[in-house]
Amino acid sequence: MNRICTACLLVYCLAYPTLARAADTAPAKVAAPAASKPAPDDRPTGDQKAIDGDPALRKDAEKAAPPAAERATSLTATIVVKVVHPQEVRKAAVERARAAGGWPTLVTDAELHLEVPQAALADTVDQLAAAGIVLQKSLQRVDRTEQIAQLQAKLKSKREILERLRTFFADSDTQSTLRIEQSMTQLVVEIESLQGELNVAESSARTAHVQASFQYHQRQRITYLRSPFEWLNTLDIDRFLAEF
C-alpha cells in the first residue's frame, strides 16, 4: 500500500508543472478540490492570508460583490486647465480629494495627480474645471473584469493544488517530502505574485485616477506645415511678433 501511495505521489509531483500550466490556461475547467486532510505544521513560509485567502476578507468581498452585470472598470480622467493661481487651486483640490477619501500621488508646479473614489471622480473633475479655463479633458475607461476574473481563477486553482500537495506529506518518504516542499515553495511564490496583481487590479477598479495639468504642453514645439493656401503659411507666432 505504501509503495502504491509513494508511486502515486511521485507521478503527481512529476506531473505538477503540467497541471499548473493547465490550471493557468483553463481556470474554469479546474476540478473541485480533493477532500483535504488537516494541514501539516511545517508549511512553506509566506503571507498565509495571501496564500490561503483571508476568510474574513473573502466574506466581506462576497457581501460587497457587485451584481453579475456590473463591470470592474478603472477610470482615468485627464484635464488641462489654465488657472490664474495654480497653487490655490492645487491646494483646494488636494483638500477636496482627501475629504472624499482620496489622496494625491503627484504634486508639482504644473501637475497634480489624485486618486479618488470612483463616485467622487465627476465632482473632482468638475471642480478643477470650474477653477479655470479647460483646454483639454478626456476620460479613459479600462474594463478590468476579465483580468480580475482570470487572476481570481488562477489563484483559486493554485490554492487548491497547494492544498492537495499538503495531503501527501503524511505518507511520503524523505526524498518525496523534499520534492513536495520544492513544489509548494514555487507555488507559494506564484500565489503571492498573483495575489499582488489581483490587489492592484481590484484597487484600480475601486479608485479613479485624476491627472490635472495646469500647463498645455502636448507638443513641445510648433511644427511648420506647408498649406496650399498662401496666406495660411503666414500664420505664425514668431512672424507675428517679429513684424509687430
Binding site: Q136, F229, W231
Partner: peptide
Amino acid sequence: RNYPKADLAFWADAMQRHLVASGYL
C-alpha cells in the same frame, strides 16, 4: 488675398485645420 475666392466659413475652417495640424490647440 482672398485666393482662391472663398467665403468666411471656408477660411475659418481651413485656418483651424492648418493651425491645429501645426500643433496649436
